[in-house]
Design a protein around this nucleic acid. Structure first.
Lengths: 339, 339
DNA sequence: TTGTACGCGTTATCAG
DNA sequence: CTGATAACGCGTACAA
């Protein structure tokens, strides 16, 4: 092998490996003369301390894992970007895992991360509501974990979420104020924390405004583009809603496509509001009224929370919760003014 | 420490560590009885072979690094998703690095990856056209590297790109056929491979159609949202183009926003075409004509190429090039029919 | 089929 | 300030 290691560098410099090592770490004392000599030679020979050896030695990887349900989604890519920024500042690397909303993958990822590969995990959980008690089976060995956005309520661990209930309430109220009284709620998994919380806000807003809650108006969608197309079209035709509240961005798009196809006019025939972090919502036809989550900030806060735990691993299992505010931005898709 | 390792597991089972080790690897012989016994106990005690120790031993990390200029961008998130899928199939993990188009970060990432952390790199290079010869300074130690989309032409390494020249040519021709003869070309860095290639297609199409190339119509944009807003508005007002060819998605959005603000009508006053992987291009106002790159596929192919090299590291430095086809999808932003 | 012993490349400890 | 040495957890010759 022609690869360079600490021993060869030591030989080349007629020094011991310990001295070399010291040159690369800040704590131990070393004369600045030798240190410079070492670093210079190291650069010349392209030496870097082997990461795996260091990690083995120090029992930490300086790596965190990020698990998300999907990637090609503005929300998650912005969140990851936020995480990445904070991680980089802290000298950490990040591993990415995509579950495609598959619970089995999630379990698999988590389990295989408990082998030293990562020091901590930031996760937005998959959309399948299975038994997630598996997270409790690691005992004391469980890695520090921070949830963001989509969480399991019964797992005690720090989390960063948005004020979903309140936003949903306001979003529904917004539709009502714009004259809707048959508001359909589009959801992917209404039993999952996020779908559930958001639905409650919807229901309570209806009640407050004395509109009877009609269970038929809860439209259960899937993660498949094709299936949603069918589901949404049928819902629009059969339920004849005058408002649509999409609990995730994708369902707003499905609604737009369906309306185009069916000749239903937004906002005249049906008004649409959606949770969405889409930066180009103003460019849609019509521009989309959104409940915008501070995606990047959520990622950053989740990362900060994780690093807090990593820094003083005393309070590993404390369940602090950070709630960030989403903002409703009214645009044409819910306007009832003159066009 | 209460953490479990191979030694403790061995003790618990009254076996030697080597036997345990064998149970987790396929090659060595071991009686299936003991193997099962070991795996069962391992599961019970939550034992997994320590990743760093294994890697140190085997000198490979089963990890690849993906370096991209940005994350909150449909193209890159789709590409990464493609890479992720292939990596997972091959049992590899992926590390993500975002350069924010900062050349210094890129160099830094690459250098620090050469310490065993990753077995290979997939990169779309940053937008700054600096000296990238640094990639040649690793000598034999250089990690297998695959470029995708944005490449350095003078670095010999496998790459996956799209037929940019041809697509640009056709895109420009499309605008001309729709009646444009003052087509502005919006570009972020015209000296970077991708901006350059795309510009050449633009120029050649003009020439072919006997339209004089006017250098003023090349609009040099930046990566900043605010700056672009100013630049694009000024360009629209001063140059009065009847067509805009955006070399990246972001500039098409900037053009849309600018047109809204200035009361310029798309496509009546100016037609717009753009390189873009935006899945909701049909939902824009007006729907955007795109040159759509097969982003996920590009990612997949890049990953496959890398794994080919990793599997038989003989031909590390061969420079095979894979060219995938982009597709022009005409929509309303370039239509000249009756609205 | 199973066990022993060594080394992968580092770093912390201790001695000088 | 520098050097020798042991240990991190694992996998593989080699021996039994």
């Amino acid at each position: 092998m022609d690869s360079i290691n600490i021993k060869k560098l030591a030989e080349a410099l007629k020094l011991s490996t310990s001295t070399i090592s010291r040159a690369f770490r800040d704590n131990s004392d070393i004369s600045s003369a030798t240190k410079e000599r070492i670093l210079a030679k190291a650069k010349e020979l392209n030496y870097q301390p082997n990461h795996y050896a260091s990690n083995l030695r120090e029992q930490k990887s300086k790596t965190i894992a990020v698990i998300v349900p999907e990637l090609a989604n503005n929300y998650f890519s912005q969140a990851i970007h936020g995480i990445e920024r904070i991680a980089r500042e802290n000298g950490y690397h990040i591993l990415i895992y995509v579950t495609d909303d598959d619970y089995k993958k999630e379990v698999n990822f988590i389990q295989h991360l408990h082998n030293g590969r990562a020091d901590g995990i930031i996760m937005s959980v998959s959309g399948e509501a299975n038994d997630h008690n598996y997270l409790n089976n690691f005992g004391a060995k469980r890695l520090p974990l921070v949830f963001f956005d989509r969480i399991y309520e019964d797992i005690e661990t720090p989390r960063v979420i948005t004020n979903d209930y309140n936003s949903s309430y306001l979003a529904t109220e917004h539709l009502i104020e714009q004259g809707c009284n048959r508001v359909a709620y589009m959801v992917v998994n209404k039993s999952l924390s996020i779908g559930k919380t958001r639905m409650q806000g919807y229901i309570d807003a209806l009640t407050k405004h004395e509109i009877a809650f009609d269970e038929n108006l809860i439209v259960d969608c899937s993660n498949s583009y094709e299936e949603n197309s069918v589901i949404v079209k049928r819902a629009l035709l059969e339920l004849k809603p005058d408002g649509v509240f999409a609990s995730v961005e994708r369902l707003a798009f499905a609604t737009y496509y369906a309306c185009y196809d069916l000749g239903i006019k937004i906002p005249d025939d049906v008004k649409v509001i959606s949770f969405s972090s889409l930066e180009i919502a103003p460019l849609l036809n019509p521009s989309l009224t959104t409940i915008t989550q501070p995606a990047a900030e959520i990622g950053e806060e989740a990362a900060k929370l994780l690093f807090q735990i990593l820094d003083n691993d005393a309070d590993k299992n404390q369940s602090n919760e950070l709630i960030l505010e989403s903002k409703i931005i009214a645009r044409n898709s819910t306007s009832n003014g003159v066009k």
